[in-house]
Amino acid sequence: MAASAHGSVWGPLRLGIPGLCCRRPPLGLYARMRRLPGPEVSGRSVAAASGPGAWGTDHYCLELLRKRDYEGYLCSLLLPAESRSSVFALRAFNVELAQVKDSVSEKTIGLMRMQFWKKTVEDIYCDNPPHQPVAIELWKAVKRHNLTKRWLMKIVDEREKNLDDKAYRNIKELENYAENTQSSLLYLTLEILGIKDLHADHAASHIGKAQGIVTCLRATPYHGSRRKVFLPMDICMLHGVSQEDFLRRNQDKNVRDVIYDIASQAHLHLKHARSFHKTVPVKAFPAFLQTVSLEDFLKKIQRVDFDIFHPSLQQKNTLLPLYLYIQSWRKTY
């Protein structure tokens, strides 16, 4: 089996927390979720979201995140109150960019949308954001926290390059993509939290790379249903696996070995980020709550012996909000 052949990389499970039942964490995340308004986002309300009498641009960002990046939404709820709305805006910006690729039928249209967001970032730093909910909220975040323009532009530029429907040539190319998107998002989150620390940035770099790799793995069944495969070609070739094997949902050992190798790289990034947690300011830990969902996925895929098409991998963990709150309460990542 794939797991038994390579099992030495995987460390002990961390979500089991001995003695936790003896201490009762304060009510927090679930209460916040219940208090949030929840009407559906419609095209009509989106168009009017920044106008008078609408929910408001902040509510639009929150709803977009809740629907399109639920794990990011849950993590954002546990940030300090003064930072929450800015991170909602930042993550909503990322969602807007991420959904361009799947929402257009022609690359030219995707490039036009990316050009809109490039100009939007430029206009935000000229205090002239367009009348668009996410743009307005992002402008507020930039003004409030003096966010670095370079990180925002890196996210747009990398998403634009990724409009080509090509597999990553190697794991390094996937890591570079993750660094310029997910890690950049974390650098900006640290700025919102008021953290300027080399060790925190180092952790953000590795956690962002782990996030990018896990996202690529999780999306494999969806991409396969659209006749697309984006997994690193070098690892596929190493194990003699073709793109057609993934399109046919082949579950042979060599296919699972490909998934094992890729998942192991995410695991190593996560492990390395945690190896120097004592040197990272505690104030930075809330920015890294996504490690909970990353670890949850890596454990699940290990349990199914790296069968990327196993139905259990597509099921939401209903206990994730609780695990996130516990992680926040324990002040760790």
Results as ranks from 00 to 15, higher is better:
residue 288 F to V: 02
residue 236 C to L: 15
residue 99 Q to E: 13
residue 288 F to A: 00
residue 294 L to W: 00
residue 181 T to G: 02
residue 315 Q to P: 06
residue 132 Q to C: 10
residue 291 T to N: 04
residue 140 K to A: 03
residue 313 L to Q: 00
residue 300 K to N: 12
residue 227 R to A: 09
residue 55 W to S: 15
residue 124 I to L: 09
residue 320 L to S: 04
residue 123 D to Y: 05
residue 110 G to Y: 07
residue 317 N to Q: 15
residue 101 K to Q: 15
residue 278 K to S: 09
residue 150 R to L: 08
residue 112 M to H: 14
residue 197 D to G: 03
residue 149 K to R: 08
residue 268 L to G: 08
residue 138 L to D: 02
residue 142 V to K: 10
residue 149 K to Q: 05
residue 191 E to Y: 00
residue 45 S to W: 10
residue 84 R to D: 00
residue 109 I to V: 12
residue 97 L to P: 00
residue 167 A to W: 15
residue 151 W to H: 06
residue 104 V to G: 11
residue 225 S to M: 14
residue 194 G to V: 00
residue 303 R to W: 07
residue 130 P to T: 09
residue 224 G to K: 12
residue 254 N to R: 15
residue 287 A to F: 00
residue 83 S to Y: 10
residue 93 F to T: 01
residue 109 I to P: 12
residue 148 T to V: 04
residue 168 Y to P: 14
residue 188 L to H: 01
residue 312 S to P: 00
residue 118 K to E: 05
residue 216 C to Y: 04
residue 246 F to R: 02
residue 224 G to R: 13
residue 285 F to S: 15
residue 225 S to A: 14
residue 170 N to S: 13
residue 280 V to L: 10
residue 59 H to P: 07
residue 310 H to S: 09
residue 296 D to Q: 08
residue 271 K to D: 15
residue 210 A to W: 00
residue 212 G to D: 03
residue 284 A to T: 06
residue 315 Q to L: 09
residue 68 R to C: 14
residue 188 L to G: 05
residue 68 R to K: 15
residue 133 P to C: 09
residue 314 Q to A: 11
residue 129 P to G: 02
residue 301 I to Y: 01
residue 180 N to S: 10
residue 207 I to K: 00
residue 70 Y to V: 07
residue 100 V to Y: 06
residue 320 L to T: 05
residue 253 K to S: 14
residue 309 F to L: 06
residue 127 D to N: 08
residue 191 E to G: 04
residue 54 A to N: 14
residue 128 N to V: 15
residue 67 K to P: 02
residue 320 L to V: 07
residue 215 T to Y: 11
residue 305 D to P: 01
residue 224 G to F: 11
residue 200 A to T: 07
residue 253 K to W: 13
residue 146 N to G: 14
residue 266 A to D: 00
residue 224 G to Q: 15
residue 112 M to Y: 15
residue 97 L to D: 00
residue 221 P to G: 13
residue 109 I to N: 15
residue 236 C to S: 06
residue 306 F to K: 01
residue 297 F to T: 07
residue 213 I to D: 02
residue 60 Y to R: 06
residue 187 Y to Q: 04
residue 260 Y to L: 07
residue 241 V to F: 03
residue 120 T to D: 02
residue 200 A to R: 01
residue 311 P to I: 07
residue 233 M to H: 07
residue 206 H to Q: 04
residue 65 L to C: 10
residue 243 Q to L: 05
residue 83 S to K: 15
residue 83 S to E: 13
residue 228 K to P: 03
residue 275 S to G: 14
residue 181 T to P: 01
residue 317 N to W: 15
residue 48 A to T: 15
residue 64 L to A: 13
residue 99 Q to D: 15
residue 324 L to G: 03
residue 260 Y to R: 07
residue 178 A to Y: 02
residue 167 A to R: 05
residue 118 K to W: 04
residue 251 Q to G: 15
residue 165 D to L: 14
residue 169 R to D: 10
residue 134 V to H: 03
residue 59 H to W: 09
residue 197 D to C: 06
residue 203 A to H: 01
residue 64 L to W: 10
residue 285 F to T: 12
residue 208 G to C: 00
residue 319 L to P: 04
residue 300 K to C: 13
residue 250 N to E: 11
residue 273 A to W: 01
residue 330 R to M: 14
residue 247 L to I: 12
residue 66 R to Y: 09
residue 150 R to N: 07
residue 233 M to S: 08
residue 210 A to R: 03
residue 263 A to F: 04
residue 193 L to K: 02
residue 304 V to A: 13
residue 321 P to A: 13
residue 307 D to G: 00
residue 48 A to F: 15
residue 87 V to E: 03
residue 201 D to S: 05
residue 131 H to P: 13
residue 112 M to I: 11
residue 131 H to I: 15
residue 174 L to G: 00
residue 304 V to P: 00
residue 317 N to L: 07
residue 175 E to W: 01
residue 213 I to C: 05
residue 269 H to K: 01
residue 291 T to L: 05
residue 275 S to H: 08
residue 90 L to F: 03
residue 263 A to M: 03
residue 294 L to D: 04
residue 202 H to T: 05
residue 297 F to L: 04
residue 234 D to R: 01
residue 154 K to D: 06
residue 188 L to T: 05
residue 45 S to M: 12
residue 253 K to L: 13
residue 293 S to P: 12
residue 271 K to I: 12
residue 315 Q to C: 14
residue 52 P to L: 08
residue 60 Y to H: 08
residue 130 P to G: 13
residue 58 D to H: 13
residue 192 I to Y: 01
residue 322 L to Y: 10
residue 187 Y to H: 08
residue 65 L to V: 11
residue 129 P to D: 03
residue 129 P to V: 14
residue 163 L to Y: 13
residue 200 A to L: 00
residue 161 K to V: 09
residue 140 K to V: 00
residue 59 H to T: 10
residue 72 G to R: 04
residue 150 R to G: 06
residue 118 K to S: 07
residue 274 R to W: 04
residue 291 T to M: 07
residue 105 S to E: 14
residue 184 S to N: 12
residue 329 W to F: 12
residue 103 S to D: 15
residue 84 R to K: 10
residue 186 L to Y: 11
residue 276 F to G: 08
residue 160 E to G: 13
residue 51 G to T: 15
residue 52 P to K: 11
residue 61 C to K: 03
residue 166 K to F: 13
residue 124 I to G: 00
residue 326 I to H: 06
residue 237 M to V: 10
residue 89 A to F: 00
residue 299 K to F: 09
residue 315 Q to H: 09
residue 125 Y to F: 14
residue 324 L to D: 01
residue 48 A to M: 15
residue 53 G to L: 13
residue 246 F to M: 12
residue 91 R to E: 03
residue 265 Q to F: 11
residue 318 T to D: 15
residue 84 R to L: 09
residue 58 D to P: 11
residue 64 L to V: 11
residue 55 W to E: 13
residue 207 I to G: 00
residue 90 L to N: 01
residue 114 M to P: 03
residue 274 R to T: 02
residue 184 S to D: 01
residue 81 A to T: 15
residue 136 I to E: 10
residue 186 L to Q: 00
residue 317 N to Y: 08
residue 45 S to V: 04
residue 56 G to L: 14
residue 197 D to F: 00
residue 188 L to A: 10
residue 306 F to R: 01
residue 122 E to D: 15
residue 72 G to L: 10
residue 152 L to I: 15
residue 261 D to H: 09
residue 159 R to S: 05
residue 90 L to V: 10
residue 56 G to A: 15
residue 95 V to I: 14
residue 111 L to C: 11
residue 94 N to V: 04
residue 327 Q to M: 07
residue 128 N to Y: 12
residue 330 R to P: 00
residue 319 L to N: 10
residue 240 G to I: 02
residue 126 C to G: 15
residue 235 I to F: 07
residue 64 L to S: 14
residue 49 A to G: 05
residue 331 K to S: 11
residue 267 H to N: 07
residue 204 A to R: 01
residue 82 E to T: 15
residue 213 I to T: 02
residue 47 A to P: 04
residue 262 I to F: 05
residue 271 K to C: 13
residue 308 I to R: 04
residue 219 A to H: 04
residue 308 I to T: 00
residue 272 H to I: 11
residue 113 R to A: 06
residue 73 Y to D: 02
residue 284 A to H: 00
residue 83 S to R: 14
residue 151 W to G: 04
residue 170 N to Y: 08
residue 180 N to W: 15
residue 125 Y to G: 03
residue 143 K to C: 10
residue 171 I to S: 05
residue 310 H to W: 01
residue 114 M to K: 04
residue 213 I to N: 00
residue 183 S to L: 03
residue 145 H to K: 05
residue 74 L to Y: 07
residue 162 N to C: 12
residue 238 L to V: 12
residue 49 A to W: 15
residue 176 N to L: 13
residue 283 K to F: 07
residue 160 E to L: 13
residue 184 S to H: 14
residue 63 E to A: 14
residue 253 K to D: 15
residue 54 A to S: 13
